[in-house]
Design a binder for these strands. Structure first.
Length: 433
RNA sequence: GGAAGGGUGGCUGAGUGGUUAAAGGCAUCUGACUCGAAAUCAGAAGUAGUCGCAAGGCUACCGUGGGUUCAAAUCCCACCCCUUCCGCCA
């Protein structure tokens, strides 16, 4: 959520930054300001009436204390109709506020000043590249073929269980998935100074609002119902990413400045409806309804946030380096950024069987956009309450990492070599047919 | 699911209709004492909204939402959460 004071005081600036996203959100600003003014007008009226009522009530109290009943009754009659006026104005103010906030919750974050202007993914500049596309002296197989020949994933039976877009890992596939999870967690915990947490996989709506997934993208998530009572549907939602519960851990808290930075690392499955997305329902592991991910979350002081973002990208890159994968880092342009982000780097890993890059990590600084929504603050040494910056990054998404790994390290004989860093976890050097 | 007891400020804990933003204690900050520290003494200190150039004023907030009343932490209703016990259960 943007700061209403910023919208009031630097209206043109806010409008022009929103416009760089190309989604037309700047058009909402006028309505927001109109509602904001209506709210403040009603507030100032109702508050002076309340002030009057409080004063008279105290006088009545004093008169009652002195047993001057008649005088007290006279004053009561005087203020009798104040209550109705107050509740009418209170209602007006509340309605304006709700209407204003409903619009505010639909406004995306302002892109940071350093973000290149652009309309779509085609305008994203490449920041750096690691490694290179390797040359195979045979035709590399796709992960779907490898999964079949090595019996790593049973796509057909997964579909039988849950429909398309779900994966049934089998034998070495399941072990590889588990080894990757452990490898990622251990790397970030022991080398990158994160604290491991393991959050609930279902959360209340307020957590989704807090990180900016609701209300705008409500149609993308799975709601669950307890028992067979339809009334319970949507009290809880399956998390689309560990960011949702973990970023909310300190919601509505006032942290001490010395607690910052907080760095959390969490493994969770992620559940996504992917309504309308390309590639759902096709065979393979690139876009599925459930996938595993190790997520990085940081809660930091604003002045350190962009340094922390660079480090976070480095933490995710380290994963790919240790696994011997070729990747590139791109900076998302204004038109391609996520709703809550002020600056986002994507990391794309090369998948030779696909002949394309796959997004395996997205690292963002949401600045105070989320902390405002969840009312998370920290108290400075000077005693001032400020909103921390919240960063999130994948470290990394698993199904696609799995794809890149087996496609990259496949051999002519159909086997897959396991990178040295992963061998202690998988306890083998090679997966063979 | 059943029964009982609870939700008050950073923590703890009083408070059953009228100077209660809310006693006391702990923790925090400032000052005094001290070479320094501890102890002690004195004082300060909630969060947010709104008006104001500012000083400052006003309003709201005692789990949440309603209701009664001139006036609600306090009375009434609904809901949520926590603890303990019982039942069921991985």
């Amino acid at each position: 959520m943007l700061d209403i004071k910023l919208i009031r005081e630097k209206t043109d600036f806010v409008r022009s930054r929103l416009a760089t996203r190309g989604a037309g959100d700047e058009a909402k600003i006028d309505d927001i300001l109109t509602l904001d003014e209506a709210r403040r007008k009603a507030l100032s009226e109702v508050e002076s009436l309340k002030s009057l009522r409080n004063r008279v009530s105290k006088e009545i109290g004093a008169l009652m204390g002195q047993k001057k009943i008649a005088e007290a009754d006279a004053k009561k009659a005087e203020t009798k109709d104040l209550g109705d006026k107050i509740s009418a104005l209170d209602k007006q103010a509340a309605e304006s506020e709700v209407a204003r906030d409903t619009l505010m919750l639909q406004l995306p974050n302002l892109p940071h000043g350093s973000i290149p202007l652009g309309k779509s993914a085609e305008d994203n500049p490449e920041i750096r590249v690691h490694g290179a596309k390797q040359n195979f002296d045979f035709k590399p197989k796709s992960h779907v073929e490898l999964c079949a020949s090595l019996k790593l994933v049973d796509f057909e039976r997964a579909a039988k269980l849950s429909g398309s877009g779900f994966l049934l890992y089998t034998n070495w596939g399941a072990r590889l998935e588990r080894a990757l999870i452990s490898f990622l967690l251990d790397l970030h915990i022991t080398q990158h100074d994160y604290t491991e947490v393991s959050p609930p996989l279902m959360v209340g709506e307020q957590c989704l609002v807090g990180v900016g997934q609701f209300p705008k993208f409500k149609d993308q998530y799975y709601g669950v119902a307890e028992g067979d009572d339809a009334k319970n549907l949507g009290k809880l939602y399956l998390i689309p990413t560990a960011e949702t519960p973990v970023a909310n851990i300190h919601r509505e808290e006032i942290l001490a400045e010395k607690q910052l930075p907080i760095r959390y690392c969490a493994y969770t499955p992620c559940f996504r409806g992917e309504a309308g997305a390309a590639g759902v329902g096709t065979r393979g592991m690139i876009r599925v309804h459930q996938f595993d991910k190790v997520e990085l979350i940081k809660i930091v002081k604003p002045e350190n946030a962009y340094d922390e973002l660079e480090k976070m990208v480095g933490n995710a890159e380290k994963v790919l380096q240790l696994l011997g994968l070729h990747y590139r880092v791109i900076l998302l342009c204004t038109g391609d950024m996520g709703f809550g982000s002020a600056k986002t780097y994507d990391i794309e890993v090369w998948a030779p069987g696909q002949g394309s890059y796959l997004e395996v990590s997205s690292c963002s600084n949401c600045e105070d956009f989320q902390s405002r929504r969840m009312n998370m603050r920290f108290k400075t040494e000077a005693g001032e309450n400020k909103f921390p910056h919240i960063l999130n990054g994948s470290g990394t998404a698993l199904a696609r990492l799995f794809v890149a790994l087996i496609e990259t390290h496949q051999q002519a004989d159909g086997s897959v070599n396991i990178p040295e860093a992963l061998q202690p976890y998988l306890k083998t050097e090679k997966i063979s047919p």
